[in-house]
Nucleic acid binder design. Structure first.
Lengths: 235, 235
DNA sequence: CCGACAGCGTCAATGGCGTTGGCATAAGGT
DNA sequence: ACCTTATGCCAACGCCATTGACGCTGTCGG
């Protein structure tokens, strides 16, 4: 008992602006998004965001309860954009592919949001909307309910899991990523073929793939399997 | 022109201990793993790790070049644990399934470690061994190199990504998980069918699946697609 | 045998981070 | 006029990773 579920007014932001203000929640989120795009997830700090806005970092706390609140607002904004830029064509495979890439892209900006969404049942409107959309695509395509639910679960968790992973990699300082490339050149690319023949044989292919996220490929493979299950069910 | 490329001796560790030392690389990694398991990724700091070892934080820099180097060593240790309990049977599908579940399980035991180490190229022996094993299974099974590399990449990243996600869910306090079930009961299970018909229609199935990890299903789907690609390649 | 040296550990300091409390100011509502 | 409230800045606190100077101790070459 005494679950102490925060009554939402505690985590709510302050009232809408009435007086003449230089900043605004909207302006802050947009500036934060620009910083994320230009400098990566690790480049977004309260101090730098304040500087970019020409304001003191502490001013941000007039609009958000903390950095966590800010990133949550960013996540809401991004998932909203992902959903608004998506319309079902009736073809389940491209529809799901598009939606998956959109969700992945949306959550890429903040890994914490992805982990929270996947491990908690938030019941936020946007999340409900996304879940409903996925299930609608699957069930109207003819997937039986057990298969639809199984694929839905794998689909959404895969999108969020890869987003969290890829965002963490993106958040690495540039020095670490550069040193990774050096490491690849000095170690992987020149492995003796007698001890590691398969890595040596595929080194160029590995090098080409290492820089990109594996999510698109994983998503396509999931959709492959879904097609298999649909054929088995209807046929 | 600055010094630019570090000649790899900079990122290398110091020579093995000869004199009587209180600490050791092995002891530090094990302590770090315990801290990760007990306090999550955010709980691992140089200061706290030093305190847990009864040493000054700066002492860690005698063994590792920095926190970045430490996390690489942690990943290496976990990969090694997953590999030690695995032997190839020659049947690519159960072999990969077993290996995937092993990697997932290894990282699951130490929450948040996957997200710290994935997508990094450490070039450490254990990691090379795992990569070589996966590629060997795929290539000896007859996968063409491009398909083998594509599947390898999706396979390893998916294992780590789901491990990170599932570990985060597992690390939640019992109170939070209980409140999630309440949230399910109060929100998802009683959604009005006219606004969210597909969630409402599959609510019981969704509820049953929500508690488990989607990784086994996602892994099977990835292997499904791999089988499809193998069949297409071998005619 | 002894001095040089390398491994090991500590101390103090640097610069970055999120966050807080106090204080000023300007706009509304009364 | 008043008071309230929103807004912004300043200084400070306690974290964080990392570094350089300094002492100690064991090993080894002369």
């Amino acid at each position: 008992m005494a679950k102490q579920v925060v009554p939402e007014s505690d985590r709510r932001r302050r009232r809408p602006t009435k007086q003449g203000a230089v900043l605004s929640e909207r302006l802050i989120v947009e500036t934060a998004l620009r910083m994320l795009r230009e400098h990566g997830a690790g480049g977004l700090t309260a101090r730098r965001l304040g500087a970019a806005l020409g304001a003191d970092p502490s001013t941000l706390y007039r609009y958000f309860t903390g950095m966590d609140d800010l990133t949550l607002a960013i996540g809401e904004e991004l998932i909203g954009r992902a959903l608004s830029g998506w319309t079902a064509t009736g073809d389940w495979r491209p529809d799901l592919r598009e939606l998956g890439l959109g969700i992945h892209r949306a959550y890429l900006a903040h890994p914490h949001a992805a982990v929270l969404t996947a491990s908690r049942v938030s019941g936020r409107p946007r999340e409900l909307e996304a879940d409903e959309a996925i299930l609608r695509v699957l069930r109207t395509a003819g997937f039986p309910d057990p298969a639809a639910v199984r694929i839905y679960h794998a689909f959404i968790d895969q999108s969020l899991a890869f987003a969290a992973l890829d965002a963490a990699a993106l958040a690495l300082p540039a020095a670490a990523r550069a040193s990774d490339e050096d490491m690849w050149e000095s170690t992987y690319a020149h492995l003796p073929p007698d001890t590691h023949p398969h890595i040596a044989a595929t080194a160029p292919l590995l090098a080409a793939r290492m820089k990109d996220s594996a999510y698109p490929a994983a998503l396509d493979m999931l959709l492959d399997s879904a097609g298999l299950q649909l054929a088995a069910a209807t046929g």
